[in-house]
Write a protein that binds this DNA or RNA. Structure first.
Length: 215
DNA sequence: GACCAGGCACATC
DNA sequence: GATGTGCATGGT
């Protein structure tokens, strides 16, 4: 039996239910979280964000004025704190310069151009840009990550050597262009990756996608 | 102690 | 243009 990517999605949704992503209270917090979570466990990111909130610096202007040493020390639990402090500053500078720190103005920008702008910011690559677009700004774009590659290649939906945009095209060409679908699908893939499709010791024998084939 | 986590930029060949 | 490396904390 052939199953579409939509079928894969439905299987995951029926197995795990809604994931209620992104775990952030405001669009700005989501954007900050997208940078902090680069190659890092979300639990550690939460600690960093809690520090920023406790110090009342979780706002564009405040964050931008914060000395590097202080910002780095607050986000320390998220790892790579020196690099991430610099990346946060780069992003916030862009946000202030191009959109006056105004989320609504940023949401108003057209998707392809905005994506290019984000990718031009040092420290923002494809996944971080797409996470910001989808989860902070509600733009219809599919977020690819390490879990997506691992899951899709192990299940033979894609070739292992696909790059980011090949994977993204693969997914977007096979799905309705809906924000809620892209939102939930990515979150479900992370859930599956964490619970079953581990890098070592994968629990393939009890994976909900076992036997589900992509056409 | 080893391995891993919701990447990215940069150096080197 | 492919491949390797540095960045760093905290949980399992």
């Amino acid at each position: 039996m052939k199953v579409t990517l939509e079928g894969v999605y439905k299987k995951l949704y029926s197995s795990f239910g809604p994931q209620d992503w992104w775990p952030g209270e405001t669009p700005f917090e989501v954007m900050v979280g997208a940078i902090l979570t680069q190659n890092t466990n979300w639990q550690n990111v939460e600690k960093a964000i809690a520090n920023l909130r406790a110090q009342k610096v979780l706002a564009a202007h405040t964050l931008y004025k914060l000395p590097h040493r202080r910002l780095a020390s607050l986000i320390r639990p998220a790892g790579y704190f020196n690099i991430k402090a610099a990346r946060l500053k780069e992003f916030v500078k862009f946000f202030l310069d191009f959109y006056r720190g105004n989320i609504r103005m940023m949401k108003h920008a057209a998707l392809p151009a905005l994506r290019q702008q984000l990718l031009a910011v040092k420290g923002i690559g494809p996944e971080t840009a797409d996470s910001i677009l989808l989860y902070a700004l509600g733009k219809p774009i599919f977020v690819v990550d390490a879990y997506t590659r691992r899951i899709f290649s192990r299940h033979r939906y894609i070739r292992e050597d696909y790059d980011y945009h090949q994977m993204q095209d693969f997914c977007m060409q096979r799905l309705e262009q809906k924000v809620q679908l892209f939102n939930e699908f990515h979150a479900l893939l992370v859930k599956l990756g964490k619970d079953f499709c581990l890098k070592s010791k994968p629990k393939c024998h009890i994976c909900p996608l076992r036997g589900v084939k992509e056409a």
